[in-house]
Computed example of a mutant assay.
Amino acid sequence: MNVQAAPDLVMHAFEKERVINDVLASQADFSRLQPTLKLLKHPALPPDWHRLLNDCYQCGEQHAQQAIALTILPDELLQSSTLWLQGFGLLCAAAGRMAATGQSLTSNRLCDLAGQLCADLPAIDSEVRGGFYTLRSVALPAWRRLQRDRHSYEVCLQQTLLHLLAWKSEVPGVRQQAQRLLWMGGVLGEKGVAALLTLDNELSARQFSWSTLWALLAITGFLARYPAGPIFVD
């Protein structure tokens, strides 16, 4: 083996485990969220989730090294219609490609590249195909402001949830209720967490659901672990 190549292999392996562990951690954080929210009901992850993420990352590496079309992604991802699986899978593929070409991982570049990699793939969620526009325009800016002010993970997630409801819900009444809570400070306002719980219970009673809300927040939590980086790349 080339002696010089050995450190690169070690670094690539370290980077891959870091990315995969960040995905897993962004999901595990939900199980520790107190109080729990009915709005954040999430799917059961496949038992081989770690292996699937690893395969996606390696697909990105191969794409960079062999300049081949990204048609070798795992069948579970290609046949899935769920944002969380497609989103995390393609972000891992993007991370693998970036690491293989020596690029530093930034959230903006990960989102852009994930959208580019799925351009020729059928049945990919519009959020992924659009480079995670909703996350980059609403969720991530809110989350990063809260991070900057050293708020806890729970506050970041709950307040960002309110931002998504306030600006991206398709139900006008839900948008108005979330906006009203934000004007009062959201979960940072007086009795803000209790107000969020009340809203959560009311929306559940009205059978309101947003199937991709958990995925949007989990992916936001993952991307927030990386620097934003430039919006535009030459």
Rank of each mutant, 00 (worst) to 15 (best):
P172Y: 01
P172L: 01
L182V: 04
A205I: 05
L182S: 09
E202T: 11
L188G: 04
A194H: 06
W183M: 10
G192A: 02
K191S: 08
T198R: 11
G229W: 13
G186R: 01
A205N: 07
A224E: 04
L165R: 08
Y226K: 09
A194R: 08
S204D: 14
R180T: 14
A218K: 02
G221A: 11
H163P: 00
L213H: 04
G185L: 08
A194T: 06
A224F: 09
P230W: 07
A194S: 12
R175S: 09
I231T: 13
K168W: 01
V171Q: 14
G229K: 07
T220H: 09
L188W: 05
L199D: 03
F222E: 12
F208N: 00
C156D: 02
S211V: 14
E170N: 11
Q177M: 14
Q176Y: 04
T160C: 05
L199N: 01
R180S: 15
L165T: 02
A166E: 04
L157D: 14
L217G: 13
L203D: 02
V187C: 07
L157H: 13
V193D: 05
R225V: 01
G185V: 12
L164T: 03
R225P: 10
A166C: 08
A205D: 13
G189V: 09
L165Y: 10
L216E: 08
V187D: 02
L161A: 06
R206Y: 03
Y226R: 03
S209F: 06
T212F: 00
E170Q: 13
Q159R: 01
C156T: 04
